[in-house]
Amino acid sequence: MRNLIFFIYKYYVFFLFLILEIVSFVFIYRFNHYQKASFVNYTVGVTSAFYTAVSNTQEYFYLRSINDSLQMENARLRTELFSSYYNNKFNLTQVNDTLYRQQYEYIAAQVVNNSVTKRNNYITLNKGRLHGIEPEMGVISENGIVGIVMNASNHYCTVLSLLNNNCKISAKILKNGAFGSLVWDGMDPKFAYLRDVNKHVPLMTNDVIVTSNFSTIFPEGIPIGKIYAHSLDAGDNFHKIKVELNTNFSTVSTVYVIRNLFKQEQQGIEATINQK
């Protein structure tokens, strides 16, 4: 026993190192496997305040481009307004419409922290639980998809950027409906890769890629990008497709978080499959 204590005393630095290293590995393991990442929830309050201050300053430099993109979007939305259509009806009747129920709600948010050069990139937004944001909600910009909400504190949320090793998004080719999964290889933030598209599917460059109807996170048909290049190796069953992303991740600043009002219902009915 005395020898043991002496041994520990002699190498106490090594044991201290070992304990701290184990602590950090526990953090990493929990973060990678549970996605709960309680650590981030504790620190996000402090660090987000810092990043908000930084982003408030930086925003001044981008005001012009933000204005431009908002103006463009306003113009587009205005054209879709009811008042910009010619009304062909003679008499209007009020109907409680049971055929069309709202399924998706959009919550506007500002990016307060973002990165594009790391292998795993994350984005922080200035809206949180109090604004109705919960984990596993989709995030889009005015041009295309951005990522998936990972954690939410009261006033902030962290988003798993599309530019991340752990982010896989179900996508399809608009013209023929062939679907695959979209992943990022860690190199260029302008391009991602569409995997698992069968070799029989005919492809053209500039074909539009949109979100598929298989996920409860994104509505169907949100634009992602277009095919930049594609190839098929001999003996390979799947196309190699390089996708040019619509969203410019290095300048993205205004985003919308998507809340699917029917998500619980869909997941509830799907869960009964596994019970049988």
Binding site: V23, S24, V26, F27, F31, A37, V40, T43, T47, Y51
Partner: peptide
């Protein structure tokens, strides 16, 4: 870590 939301790395 707390500033780059990467616990443990």
């Amino acid at each position: 870590d707390s500033f780059s939301s990467t616990p443990g790395l």
